[in-house]
């Protein structure tokens, strides 16, 4: 891939920049467009903090999804796991258990569910698509079973827990209102940092990329394929559970389906991010751009009062366009 000639060729360099950063440039174009259309309300500190809060939950799922997608695997069960983790915590809250107990149990369920996916994929050898699709149904069924299909809300959710999603670190005041860096945004940033360190700065991460590059070669090269895949799925599972807890806090309620929509958006965000990598590999910072594109599109299109069904069509079309183009580029090269 490194075909840069010794004498820099300006056109080639521009091509390279565009190839690498085309999606990012597209993102900025979208931002500029919304800014020009809604100059007073879109490009404000408050709206951007608002967007970061709205994408924080999807971000956590997508960042941790990146970990399994680095190996070329998928986890289709993340949405159901988010629902399950959230409702499990809410049920414990309803039993007047301490908030920390509820959080700990939800996280444990995330780890256990992720390990179960890992066992099916890595030890039993079922393809990730089938294994995690099956577990999606199982997690969803368990969520319905333990909650009897009901929504848990009101006093059952401790204020201490639901206030978390309303709070944040004060940044100052604009006009008469305080501006906060939302707690949910902070959680998402911490998860982003953790996944970035894990994938980009550790031997573990490099081995995952080696598996993604060529499983057989990685195995022959001494990579403990099975163990690494197990751990990677556990990370994705716990990320989904964290997202489920964030949802319960944001909605001050839990129901057995509320995280289900996260899975497809998370995979879409990772794919959008992959268009920014020369090798077409997932990188968590690329995933961040993918999540931002989805979040900004929804915020901006809503502010422009575009019909919600047209919004869906546009969002889907933009995802397909970006990923198709990136694939064509790689085929051409």
């Amino acid at each position: 891939m490194n075909t840069t000639p010794s004498i820099p060729h300006p056109a080639r360099q521009i091509g390279r920049i565009l190839r690498r950063f085309g999606t990012l440039i597209g993102f900025f174009a979208i931002v500029l467009f919304f800014w020009s259309q809604r100059p007073d309300t879109f490009m404000t500190v408050r709206n951007w903090l608002n967007i970061t809060q709205q994408i924080s939950i999807l971000g956590v799922v997508a960042f941790t999804m990146t970990v399994v997608m680095v190996m070329g695997d998928y986890d289709l069960s993340v949405g159901a796991m988010a629902s399950l983790g959230g409702i499990a915590a809410a049920l414990l809250f309803q039993q007047e258990m301490p908030v920390l107990t509820g959080i700990a149990v939800a996280l444990l369920i995330g780890v256990a569910g992720g390990l179960l996916n890992g066992v099916l994929v890595s030890l039993v050898g079922i393809t990730p698509f089938v294994a995690t699709l099956g577990m999606l149904t199982v997690f969803s069924g368990v969520a319905f079973f333990i909650s009897e299909g009901e929504t848990i809300f009101g006093r059952a959710i401790p204020e201490q827990f639901s206030d978390f999603a309303r709070g944040g670190i004060p940044l100052g005041t604009i006009g008469e209102q305080a501006v906060l860096l939302p707690n949910l945004t902070i959680v998402a940033l911490l998860v982003l940092l953790a996944v970035w360190v894990l994938l980009e700065q550790t031997t573990f991460g490099r081995r995952l990329y080696a598996i993604g590059g060529n499983k057989e070669a990685a195995r022959l090269g001494g990579v403990r394929l099975r163990l690494l895949r197990l751990i990677a799925f556990a990370v994705t599972g716990v990320g989904a559970a964290v997202a489920g807890l964030m949802l319960v806090s944001r909605l001050a309620s839990a129901n057995p389906t509320q995280g289900d929509g996260l899975m497809l958006d998370a995979i879409a965000a990772v794919f959008l991010g992959m268009t920014m990598s020369e090798e077409g590999e997932p990188h968590v910072l690329g995933t961040l751009v993918g999540v931002l594109i989805l979040g900004v599109l929804r915020n901006g299109l809503t502010q422009l009062a575009i019909d919600s069904y047209v919004q869906q069509i546009l969002t889907g079309a933009i995802i397909i366009l970006a990923v198709t183009l990136s694939r064509l580029i790689r085929r051409a090269s």
Binding site: A29, A305, I306, L314
Partner: peptide, 27 residues
């Protein structure tokens, strides 16, 4: 050529993103 193609692709993406929102102007 590859680089022309890449440049073209990026431009198409941006233009498509902008065109999709053309309808917004009428609100």
């Amino acid at each position: 050529s590859r680089r022309k193609f890449q440049g073209f692709i990026s431009v198409v993406f941006i233009v498509a993103a902008l065109l999709s929102f053309g309808a917004a102007g009428i609100v």
